[in-house]
Nucleic acid binder design. Structure first.
Length: 200
DNA sequence: GCTGGGATCGCCT
DNA sequence: GGCGATCCCAGCG
C-alpha cells in the first residue's frame, strides 16, 4: 500500500519513527529501486539546525508546503539529501531520510554508485540519493504520486520484521544544541556509520 | 580501525 | 564571501 497523504500529518518526530521499516520506491526510466527506510532524523521549526529555522527562503520553500512532498537539496556543493515534508502549510518541518536497506534494483543501485559493496550502497543520506537515482529536479514532488512514493511496512510481508527503535543525537549538526531526533532500527547493518547512543 | 583533509557550489548575509 | 543535515581516500598505527 502506498502511504496516503493523511499518514504524513502526524507530528514530525512521530512520523520520523513511523517511517522506519517502510519502503522508499523510485520508479525511474532506468528501472525501479526500492529500499527499506532504516534511519531518519526530525527537523522541527524551532530548531536552529533546521534549514527552515530562520524564515522561508527560495531554498527551503518546499519545507513550508504541504506534508507528504519531497524536499531535496544540495549539501556541501556535491551531494543531495531527501526529506519528507511534514507539518501544516506555512510550518517548515521535515524528516531527513538517512539510510536505506537495499531491497529491489540492487544491480541498478550498484551501477549508479560505482560498484560499491552492498552495505555502503545506501548507508548515508547522500549515498541513498545517488543509489536511488533521485535528482535535484524532483524537489517538491508529491510522495503520493507515481514516480517517488513510500510503501507501508506490511507491503513486503517476508521482510516485515519486529524491530527496536534506537534514539540518538543527529549527525553532522553544527548549529544549535544536540537533540535526540535521530532514529534507527536497532542492529540493522545498513544504518549510517556513526553511533552515539543515548537511549533505546 | 580511525582520523583528517579535500572536493565543490548554491544560497544566504 | 563564507559555509554546510556529506562522502571518500590516503595515511598512519
Amino acid at each position: 500500500m502506498i502511504l496516503p497523504k493523511d499518514f504524513y500529518l502526524q507530528d514530525t518526530c512521530t512520523l520520523a519513527k513511523s517511517l522506519l521499516g517502510t519502503y522508499l520506491v523510485h520508479q525511474s526510466p532506468e528501472g525501479r529501486t526500492v529500499g527499506k527506510i532504516v534511519e531518519t532524523e526530525a527537523y522541527l521549526s524551532d530548531d536552529p539546525a533546521s534549514h527552515a529555522y530562520q524564515r522561508q527562503t527560495q531554498r527551503n520553500s518546499v519545507m513550508f508546503g504541504p506534508a507528504g512532498h519531497a524536499y531535496i537539496y544540495l549539501i556541501y556543493g556535491m551531494h543531495y539529501c531527501v526529506n519528507v515534508v511534514t507539518g501544516l502549510v506555512g510550518v517548515g518541518e521535515a524528516v531527513l531520510i538517512r539510510a536505506l536497506e537495499p531491497m529491489e534494483g540492487v544491480d541498478l543501485m550498484q551501477l549508479r554508485r560505482g560498484q560499491k559493496p552492498g552495505k555502503t550502497l545506501c548507508n548515508g543520506p547522500g549515498k541513498l540519493v545517488q543509489a536511488m537515482g533521485i535528482k535535484a529536479g524532483m524537489n517538491g514532488i508529491s510522495l503520493t504520486g507515481e514516480q517517488l512514493y513510500i510503501l507501508s511496512a506490511d507491503s513486503f510481508p517476508e521482510h516485515n520484521e519486529v524491530f527496536t527503535i534506537v534514539t540518538t543525537t543527529r549527525i553532522g549538526i553544527t548549529k544549535g544544541t544536540e537533540l535526540p531526533y535521530r532514529y534507527y532500527i536497532a542492529n540493522n547493518p545498513y544504518v549510517s556509520f556513526k553511533v552515539r547512543k543515548v537511549s533505546s
